[in-house]
Write a protein that binds this DNA or RNA. Structure first.
Length: 274
DNA sequence: CGGCGGTCCTGTCAGC
DNA sequence: TGCTGACAGGACCGCC
């Protein structure tokens, strides 16, 4: 799935085509995602006009003039695609297909169904249980040294898991957690509360550097992820450790180590990352 | 409360 | 070729 750079890329990709468009038809499959898809509510979107598209963590918000917001999370395997041929034929795992008056079609496809589709009044979204507890955005002012140091000193779990904890910081998933720690020269096994001030500084810089580089590259494409136009992101060419088990570290040439932490793959260089 | 393992689901790939 | 098991970008839940 999409981590923050992929979600941001999808958001940008759909915005230019959907802004100002009016929904003419909603086809929603009665399917169980992270929670049941609210089919009856989704159908009420017909006639609504898109006024803005935003992102919070890995959630995309399509905001309408009817004061409603469509909330979409792509989970592990979800994709949000645009189709410009007037007659789109639904494919397997297309759970939501929305037609717009400008003959553009927005398709939500998610084979593993770990994603989420929800509808909420725009001004009530921040109160939703799955959004209320989220930590700061990596590029926001409230994600700073004082905040991060304070959060990390209270936690004893491995720093890699802390990076992926949405209450501490949103947007960093498994791939980028690996890449960020490699760039920062910090071992993923270190407990969060063992980091020194200078390491925390370095971590913040690399969280922002790695994510912004990935956004510029249009995200990373591994298996399922595609950009909204169906083409692929390019950042996977830039991975330094992820998926490189046994290959040479680009810095010191020793072999990249692969381990499992909380059932997620961790890749790191045990020489460069201490 | 914090940490960790199990779980939701389908697709793909390696190995037999 | 076909089966089986491991594994995959996320996040929630429940148990200690």
């Amino acid at each position: 799935m999409p981590e923050l750079p992929e979600v941001e890329t999808v958001k940008i990709g759909i915005t230019e085509h959907l802004l100002g468009s009016i929904i003419s038809e909603v086809r929603a499959e009665r399917v169980m995602l992270r929670k049941p898809m609210p089919v009856e509510n989704l159908i009420t979107l017909v006639g609504s006009k898109v006024i803005s598209i935003s992102r919070r963590a890995k959630y995309i918000f399509i905001n309408f003039d009817s004061s409603l917001s469509l909330i979409i999370h792509l989970g592990m395997s979800g994709a949000l695609l645009l189709d410009k041929s007037a007659t789109y034929l639904p494919k397997k795992h297309d759970h939501l297909v929305i037609n717009f008056d400008n003959s553009i079609c927005l398709i939500y496809n998610d084979p593993r169904r770990f994603g989420l589709v929800d509808l909420c009044k725009t001004d009530e979204c921040s109160g939703l249980s799955y959004l209320a507890a989220l930590g700061p955005e990596p590029f926001a002012k409230n994600f700073n040294f004082a905040y991060f140091q304070d959060m990390l000193k209270k936690r004893s779990l491995p720093i890699k898991l802390a990076l992926m904890d949405n209450k501490i910081l949103v947007g960093v998933g498994n791939i980028y957690a690996n890449e960020i720690l490699y760039e920062a020269g910090i071992s993923p096994l270190r407990s969060a509360n063992s980091l020194k001030a200078e390491e925390i500084e370095k971590l913040i810089l690399n969280i922002q550097a790695v994510l912004s580089k990935a956004i510029k590259a249009g995200g990373s494409t591994l298996k399922d992820y595609k950009k909204a136009d169906g083409t692929f992101g390019g950042f996977q060419e830039g991975f330094h450790v992820y998926g490189r088990k046994g290959l040479s570290c680009f810095r010191c040439s020793s072999q990249v180590t692969h381990i499992s932490q909380s059932r997620r793959s961790t890749y790191f260089c045990s020489t460069c990352q201490t």
